[in-house]
Amino acid sequence: MQAVVEHSPTPGASARKGKGAGFLLLSPAVLILLVWSLVPLGMTLWYSLLNYNLVDPTLHGFAGFSNYWYLLTDPDFLHSLLNTFILVGGVLVISVGGGTLLAVLYDQEFFGRGIARVLVISPFFIMPTVSALLWKNLMLHPIYGVYSAMMRAVGLTPIDWLAQFPLLTVMMIVAWEWLPFAVLILLTAVQSLDSEQKEAARMDGAGPVAQFRHIILPHLGRAISVVVMIETIYLLTVFAEISVTTAGGPGVASTNLAYLIYSRALLQFDVGGASAGGVVAIIIANIVAVFLVRSVARNLEV
């Protein structure tokens, strides 16, 4: 505490004492994050090696790698792993691709642009359970949903989206939540582009497509990497949207890794098996994180 209250008369002393004070001010946050990231990780690793079921006390003892073996040979696991990648990849493509185009669109001057922008980014602020219920019931319900009514109005048979295309529909709901986020970030980046530069390019006879490819797109690199990083963090663990709409079904058609582990742990009470799944999820996230942190670190001036 001493270093915090003392003030330093000379610059040299300031630097020296600064080190102690800096450490002291930084350490609470670092310590608590260290505990938060290491203790549960250690416990997950340990549980994953045990026979441990919350409702079956006869199952106990060291299991070795049998939980992993059981998990990795389970077709449900491979299916949910694939679903996880499809979900993350699909939403990233929709939100980054669509977000870039919409950012350019909402950069143009037009009547009521400010209000239109506010409407576009609104879905980002809607909580996942609300947006899932909203789409499941009010929009896509095969009998009462607005989309079904529209299809009937033009003479088509309404589709029971969540039953027939569960994963695709969940992907669309999640994309609806995250596209606005991409627009929000990318629009800011497009706006920061020097308007003189755009003007000069137009004077040189560059058409809209050429302007987009050679001036706007290169400028968006950083913003896109920020969007990809933040979205990936959240998309790897999409949970509420699945839990509320399909509960992972039918079968495991819309189960991702997060939902699989949840159902093993809190529905089947299989702590050992769920922990093994958790370890696998952490390993996958770390592989992704290494690439992401590297690319973002390159793009951020720290």
């Binding site: 670092v30 769920a274 952490i282 992704v288």
Partner: peptide, 16 residues
């Protein structure tokens, strides 16, 4: 610090 945020919550659901 940022990398601790990438720890998927579901990975530590059971211990938490």
């Amino acid at each position: 610090m940022l990398s601790t945020r990438m720890l998927p919550p579901v990975g530590v659901l059971v211990p938490i």
